[in-house]
């Protein structure tokens, strides 16, 4: 194995544009420092961190090297990435609460918890509409780019997103057809194979959402968008962040009320589907809450970037 290539391979966390300029010099530095010896794990982790930060800087997620217009666009894309995490979390929550109506709740609690669940659902649907609206808004620019021959620059992420979408569509259809022939009990725990397959499918969906979100970022940052469109997109991003906040708050409230007034649903695993519940803190809801929190943090970061970019005179 070429020793120099060994060091260059460690730099794959850095963006291609950066690598074309600095990788050779940095690989030489690593070679001079470590020679044939082992590169310490601390240094490897540091390269992962600095490489990822360099990627985030290149996209415009951090730093002030780009123009306010670009930073506003990047802020909106960061919100979109946060929404990707919400989509995965939402799917987990939806599966977990498949049959939550079976929980024995009455009176005012029933009304309150139903309202909270509705808030989660309707806010989620509103979020999907906002994202679709954003996609429609950028469609003319995307078509212009594709017609202009610039699609070569986004060929890889676009193909990746299409392949990921196709795999998910086919595997989802297969699972739905299989589930159609299974009983309620088989779908909810007694048929282990089904649980494993659904688990693998969920992981695939998570990866696919990541691939699609990454492709969306790659494509959107190369689009020649008019300022007005970016302004609309960033406004949509702020709305989306608000919806994400509402969804997380309503989900947490639903969880706490359900835990207090209908713990049997949480403990007995009625409708838990993929994940077994053993307490008021089921793994599925913890995972969903953590993902939503991470997504909301990204979205808030994006919104702050949008607001600051506007303040810095994007539209003066």
């Amino acid at each position: 194995m070429n020793r120099f290539n060994r060091f260059e391979r460690m730099l794959h966390w850095y963006p291609p544009h950066w690598r074309s300029k600095y990788a050779e010099g940095m690989a030489a530095l690593l070679e001079d420092t470590y020679g044939t010896g082992r590169v310490p794990i601390k240094v490897r982790l540091s390269l992962v961190k600095t490489g990822s930060l360099e990627r985030a800087r290149e996209v415009g997620f951090i730093g002030s090297a780009t123009s306010p217009h670009e930073r506003e666009r990047a802020g909106s894309l960061l919100v979109l990435c946060g929404w990707g995490a919400f989509m995965i979390a939402g799917a987990i929550f939806a599966k977990f609460t498949d049959n939550w109506g079976a929980s024995q709740l009455g009176g005012a609690n029933r009304t309150l918890i139903t309202s909270l669940y509705d808030v989660v659902q309707w806010s989620g649907a509103a979020g999907v509409l906002v994202v679709l609206g954003a996609a429609i808004l950028v469609l003319p620019s995307l078509l212009r780019m594709l017609r202009g021959g610039d699609w070569i620059t986004v060929r890889r992420p676009l193909l990746g997103a299409l392949v990921a979408g196709a795999i998910i569509a086919v595997s989802t259809a297969a699972i739905v057809i299989w589930a159609h022939f299974l009983s309620y009990r088989e779908r909810n725990g007694t048929l282990a194979v089904y649980g494993y397959v659904v688990g693998a499918w969920s992981l695939m969906v998570s990866v696919a959402v990541g691939v699609v979100a990454s492709a969306a970022v790659s494509v959107a940052r190369r689009l020649d968008l008019p300022r007005r469109s970016v302004q609309w997109l960033s406004t949509m991003a702020v709305v989306l962040t608000s919806l994400m906040f509402v969804i997380l708050a309503a989900m947490l409230a639903w969880w706490s009320i359900e835990s207090v007034h209908a713990p049997v649903f949480m403990r007995n695993g009625i409708g838990n589907g993929l994940f077994y519940t053993s307490s008021e803190f089921p793994l599925a809801l913890i995972a969903a809450a953590l993902l939503m929190s991470a997504g909301l943090c990204a979205a808030i970061g994006g919104t702050v970037r949008v607001v600051r970019a506007r303040r810095d005179g994007a539209y003066e």
Binding site: Y22, L29, L30, V43, S46, L47, T50, L53, E54
Partner: peptide, 10 residues
């Protein structure tokens, strides 16, 4: 570290 050094150089 190499990452910090080249980040600053960039």
């Amino acid at each position: 570290g190499p990452g910090t050094l080249y980040g600053a150089i960039t």
